[in-house]
Write a protein that binds this DNA or RNA. Structure first.
Lengths: 120, 120
DNA sequence: TCAACCAGTATACTTTTGGTAACCACTGAT
DNA sequence: ATCAGTGGTTACCAAAAGTATACTGGTTGA
């Protein structure tokens, strides 16, 4: 809804949108989950298996620990990734993509292909 | 490249990423074009034909004129939309999706479906 | 004449985001 | 003992993004 909005003119000549796109339409809502800086990349890097925190930071080359950590927390809350403490003595943590996270890979791939195909 | 990065440990035990994801990997670059607030929605609203500026603002319900204008300018520069002055006396302008812009609709639809399917 | 429309523009403001750097407590190798 | 590693946290700052309100200058219709 909202996505099929139309403009109507009432009897006084005032224009209004019949179905204004309510603040977060599906596209906006999706973007909120996956559109943040690094989020897409992070999820993509996890697609082949669990990755440790610092490895992830290195792979993203350019993102600070703080950024990666922040995004990972948001994505964990959203249920896209899962944090697991692998070992306690020398603390080791891995981040793994969840089943729900995997459902987003399809569209991330579409985005990736689109970018590459159009040399963006 | 960068997307298949691996962590290697050198002879001194120091770890480095063999192919660090260079600042803008395809996913990041794509997000830069389509990930901004409202951009996806705007493109989606144009998919069925040209829309006039104020109608677009009304349809997006929540975005300010300034925002919509800014995004439209960015998207015009990127070649995603085309601005056209339809009439001069009572000034009328329409925004239309370009052929290039249409190539992005596929993945926007994927995002929309994903959001709706997962009640995001 | 008045109000509403057109497509923006100007200004000022708040919020969010991103980034640096230092720090924590611990481990393992040199 | 010192350095580099583990996974973070914290404080601080700059820049970007977004919001709100009002305004331009002309046109249109009641």
């Amino acid at each position: 809804m909202g996505i099929d909005s139309q403009i109507v003119t009432d009897s006084n000549g005032r224009k209004t949108a019949s179905q204004p796109c309510l603040e977060p339409c599906p596209i906006e809502r999706g973007m909120r989950l996956l559109g943040g800086k690094w989020k897409g990349s992070i999820l993509w890097h996890l697609k082949d298996g669990p990755v440790r925190f610092n490895d992830l930071v290195r792979q993203l080359g350019g993102a600070s620990k703080k950024m990666v950590n922040q995004r990972l927390q948001e994505m964990e809350e959203a249920g896209l990734v899962k944090r697991e403490v692998v070992c306690d003595r020398p603390i080791a943590v891995t981040y793994e993509i969840t089943e729900f996270g995997k459902t987003a890979l399809g569209f991330l791939e579409a985005l990736k292909n689109w970018s590459e195909a159009n040399s963006i």
